[in-house]
């Protein structure tokens, strides 16, 4: 956990210090007008949004992975992220403000989660069937989102396209406040869910015997994960793969699953955003493109490991 905190701090400093415009260290130390504009006004809110959105995604992924006891069961694979993306997209298309975009993302995510759960229900939930149903649902939801895109014109279309590819360009402190407030509500709930998750790990019967209402606890944890995804999607767009890889990576670092996943999610998002804007001169890639390029090989690696262990 100490190592992870150190990494997060380093990632934040890197994110503040580097970018498309190069700022010599002496200018940063002197804190002149250019440094104040570049770091204080442009980069700091962007890094703050990356930290908070990444933490929300990582935590959401870890909650679902623990709940379904499957490292592949993350909100992006299960189609929840696409649902939140479609919901927020509809509001963006209608010209809605920050609050309504968050609500749109939340409604879309909840509807997608309900639909995927209902469609994969067959006298119980088999995680792998739920994953397959989620993949199908993502496909349909993304196609509908694409279609909505083509119905927009001019400035709206440009804004929506940028948002849709998961972008942190032009984030300001308002966005950071928005997700900060969401997390202020959701993080204490996540801490509360920790006990329920531990009990669920003991098996349904033991958990019930220890006084846990199993179905209600599961629904509550899933709803919490969806709310976390929605608050991240509302400020950063549907960023893929962060939720998938944060939890398992945190465990590799020997950190506790939930807290570690939040920190790893933040680190990954800050670094991916840094790579997206600074890796190629003169090109600002959307964050979602970078997490796609980094995250897809990870999913393939995890797939082969799960196959080797005979769990897939």
């Amino acid at each position: 956990m100490i190592r992870l905190s150190g990494l997060l701090l380093a990632a934040i400093l890197l994110g503040l210090a580097f970018g498309e415009v190069h700022l010599p260290p002496s200018a940063i130390l002197r804190w002149d007008g250019a440094a104040e504009l570049l770091i204080g006004v442009i980069r700091a809110p962007r890094v703050a949004v990356a930290v908070l959105a990444g933490a929300a995604l990582g935590l959401a992924g870890a909650l679902l992975q623990s709940l379904l006891r499957n490292p592949l069961a993350s909100p992006d694979v299960l189609g929840f992220t696409s649902g939140a993306g479609l919901g927020a997209m509809l509001v963006v298309a209608l010209g809605g403000g920050a609050l309504s975009i968050t609500l749109g993302a939340a409604s879309g995510g909840v509807l997608a989660a309900l639909a995927v759960t209902a469609l994969s229900w067959k006298s119980g939930i088999v995680p792998l069937r739920m994953i397959l149903v989620g993949i199908g649902a993502s496909f349909t939801l993304q196609a509908i989102t694409q279609f909505m895109m083509t119905r927009l014109t001019g400035a709206e279309a440009v804004e929506a396209a940028r948002w849709l590819s998961g972008s942190l360009a032009a984030r300001h402190w308002g966005h950071a406040m928005q997700i900060g407030l969401c997390l202020a509500v959701l993080l204490p709930l996540a801490a509360l869910s920790l006990r329920a998750l531990r009990l669920l790990e003991l098996g349904d019967e033991v958990a019930t015997g220890l006084g846990l209402h199993v179905t209600r606890a599961r629904a509550g944890i899933a709803a919490l994960a969806v709310a976390l995804v929605a608050s991240a999607v509302a400020v950063a767009g549907p960023v893929p793969f962060v939720a998938l890889l944060a939890g398992p990576l945190a465990v590799r670092f020997g950190a506790p699953m939930l807290l570690g996943a939040a920190v790893v999610g933040a680190i990954v998002t800050v670094l991916a955003d840094l790579a997206a804007r600074g890796l190629i001169d003169g090109v600002q890639l959307p964050l979602g493109v970078m997490t796609g390029i980094l995250g897809a090989p990870y999913l393939l690696w995890m797939l082969s490991r799960e196959m080797e262990r005979g769990r897939l």
């Binding site: 994969s120 067959k122 397959l132 199908g136 349909t140 939801l141 279609f147």
Partner: peptide, 13 residues
């Protein structure tokens, strides 16, 4: 693609 996702779900189910 929109239809494809639905068919995919039906077959998976």
């Amino acid at each position: 693609a929109a239809l494809g996702g639905v068919i995919f779900i039906l077959i998976a189910r």
